[in-house]
């Protein structure tokens, strides 16, 4: 994770177009690897033989029914979390604002856990409930950010978010104590994972992801203007308050959707925009574009590692993203000058 400093000096000289092509190639390579490698007995050799036309029903099932869906879901989750992180950082004007760190994912997970205990069947209600929870989490965190003093200090916002996450985590534990039988089902909502998710889940969240991306496309230009300051943005004919609320809604839609299919996955929303900014420079529009390939890259890479380290079992994806993400957080905080957005 030492890419950014290196990136800012030499890589930025390459044109964004070349960089984008490189990233997309890398994404395709990682997606292919994701089809080839798993915790089971079907290794790269058998999987490649299958892709080149061999008849192997076991391999066909594992590659197309298990690995292909989780690869697609990983791509969707990576895009959603990366973009949500970039949006939240832009609107909070804080490079540490991350859906996982600030309790937005925790809000979504808590809402789902609560719904499960109250008797909702997991499959039907999950997505709207997760999105509602994410929205509440988002609003709580950003209203904390508006307290005098806190908003100007990125680290204090993270502290407020950590306190909020801690509160939600303890409430989720309370639910576990209240209904221990639900514990196994809820444990999934404490640390996210891509294992065993079905394409149906992805299709169920696609509409809200599409809505969010349309809204993001519409507000990207005003959002860039907002980076110049509220007065400048108003002067250019934008409505800062409206934009902010639209961004919050988008973040809630995206994080809620990602959490509903994969559970809370921490730090993707921090690392991805961080790397994207190193490639793209300060312009939020370009950063958002770069988040699209970088998010899936990170999620898929972490997912592939999660499959092989403890085979024949799997590590939860959330554990690995936290392992990659925590050093980045420390690096950002320790940087001599905390970048302001």
């Amino acid at each position: 994770m030492t890419v950014p400093r290196f990136a800012t000096t030499s890589v930025r000289r390459a044109t964004p177009r070349t960089l984008m092509i490189l990233l997309l190639t890398a994404l395709m390579a990682v997606s292919l690897v994701s089809l080839l490698i798993g915790a089971g007995s079907v290794g790269p050799g058998r999987a490649l033989a299958l892709l080149s036309g061999a008849q192997d029903s076991e391999a066909r099932f594992i590659v197309w029914e298990l690995r292909a869906p989780r690869t697609l879901i990983g791509i969707a989750v990576g895009m959603a979390l990366g973009v949500a992180g970039a949006l939240l950082q832009a609107v909070a004007r804080n490079p540490l604002a991350e859906p996982g760190l600030l309790g937005v994912s925790a809000g979504a997970a808590f809402a789902v856990a609560l719904a499960l205990v109250l008797g909702a069947s997991a499959a039907t209600l999950r997505i709207p409930v997760a999105q509602l929870g994410a929205l509440v989490g988002c609003v709580c965190v950003l209203s904390v950010a508006r307290f005098r003093g806190v908003g100007n200090d990125p680290i204090r916002l993270v502290l407020a978010g950590a306190a909020f996450s801690g509160l939600l985590a303890s409430l989720t534990s309370l639910i576990l104590l209240y209904d221990q039988r639900a514990a196994d089902e809820i444990r999934f909502w404490v640390i996210g994972s891509l294992a065993g998710r079905r394409l149906d889940d992805l299709f169920a969240v696609l509409p809200s992801m599409l809505i969010a991306s349309v809204v993001v496309a519409l507000i990207a230009r005003p959002l860039a203007a907002l980076a110049l300051g509220e007065r400048v943005a108003s002067g250019l004919g934008h409505h800062p308050k409206l934009i902010r609320w639209l961004v919050v809604a988008c973040v809630a839609l995206l994080v809620g959707a990602a959490t509903a299919i994969a559970g809370p996955i921490a730090f993707v929303g921090l690392v991805v925009p961080f790397v994207a900014r190193a490639f793209a420079g300060p312009d939020i529009r370009r950063t958002l574009w770069f988040c699209l390939p970088i998010g899936p890259l990170m999620v898929l890479a972490a997912d592939i590692i999660s499959r092989v380290v403890v085979a024949p079992s799997e590590l939860p994806l959330g554990v690995l993203t936290a392992l990659c993400g925590a050093p980045v957080l420390i690096a950002v905080v320790r940087a001599r000058r905390l970048p302001m957005l």
């Binding site: 798993g38 089971g40 079907v42 298990l66 024949p312």
Partner: peptide, 19 residues
């Protein structure tokens, strides 16, 4: 799939259900 003292294995990957 279970170690010396374990009562149960870890959650098995879906890829290994045939076991």
């Amino acid at each position: 799939l279970i170690g010396e003292r374990g009562v149960h294995s870890d959650v098995l990957s879906l890829e290994n259900l045939s076991q």
